[in-house]
Design a binder for these strands. Structure first.
Lengths: 129, 129
DNA sequence: CACAAAACGTAATAATATTACATTGTGTAA
DNA sequence: TTACACAATGTAATATTATTACGTTTTGTG
């Protein structure tokens, strides 16, 4: 069966997420890909975790949702601006912020590994209207 | 019955969390307070949400866990240093970082409401050993 | 071809959180 | 001090998110 399939589930999940304009939960992905043979939660989570390891997507902790990495191989901490009105999420990288986080950690003897920065609010479209 | 109780559930939950040296999940709190009459998830979540509104505790998104606010009525964004070895979490407030976030948002026309900053790594105790 | 590693199938279950609806307790103002 | 509104609680059911365990199939490589 696999011999006849053109893509792996990870590829399907990545492609599907790329088509979205907001992060999706694992179960939303499952629904969206059911007709493509993605039929169980495990399948989705396996794909998501693989893509996460490969740096191809991010998990938005405060939404329990997943979104493609918009700037592959970036260094420094990604920052997510999350619009609470239209659900759009924009990924940004800012070197000052990354450096300040390092500096703050140094202060306290903490050794940082990975940082989660998620800013909730209104995107420019939604805040003007 | 309530007339004979000394505390509300919210007070019990807050007191219990203060005794902990790491954030607890809602269900850990439920277990810990079962003998004090906290017997259902709803009860815990009601208390947690009330305390959250009052600014008396924080939710650590990346742990699905809850911890007391260590610096009441702080302004600016709290930053959590989370030790992945001993689970200790330290809350800090840093004005530089808060300003960074404002600046980044201004750039893109985003109107920030609340920010989540969680840094995983090793605390000073665990990184030296 | 043989083998190891990656990908997948399937079922069950764990962990986290919410909803709905009824009841009881508390503060306060007439 | 009674009446009322609001806060707190009780209870059951269910929704949502995620993991575990175990077996099979496919793929790439020497």
């Amino acid at each position: 069966m696999l011999a006849t399939t053109r893509f792996t589930h990870a590829e399907r999940v990545l492609k599907y997420l790329k088509q979205q304009k907001r992060p999706l939960t694992a179960y939303e992905i499952l629904e969206g890909l059911r007709e493509d043979g993605v039929t169980a939660p495990t399948t989705v989570y396996r794909a998501l975790n693989k893509l996460l390891e490969d740096g191809q997507l991010h998990r938005i902790e405060s939404l329990n949702a997943w979104t493609v990495c918009s700037e592959l191989h970036h260094t420094g901490t990604p920052i997510f601006e999350i619009c609470d009105s239209c659900s759009n999420v924009r990924e940004r990288v800012d070197s000052r912020l990354s450096m300040n986080i390092k500096a703050i950690s140094l202060d306290s003897g903490f050794t940082p590994d990975r940082s989660i920065i998620e800013i909730h609010g209104l995107c420019s479209d939604c805040s003007t209207s």
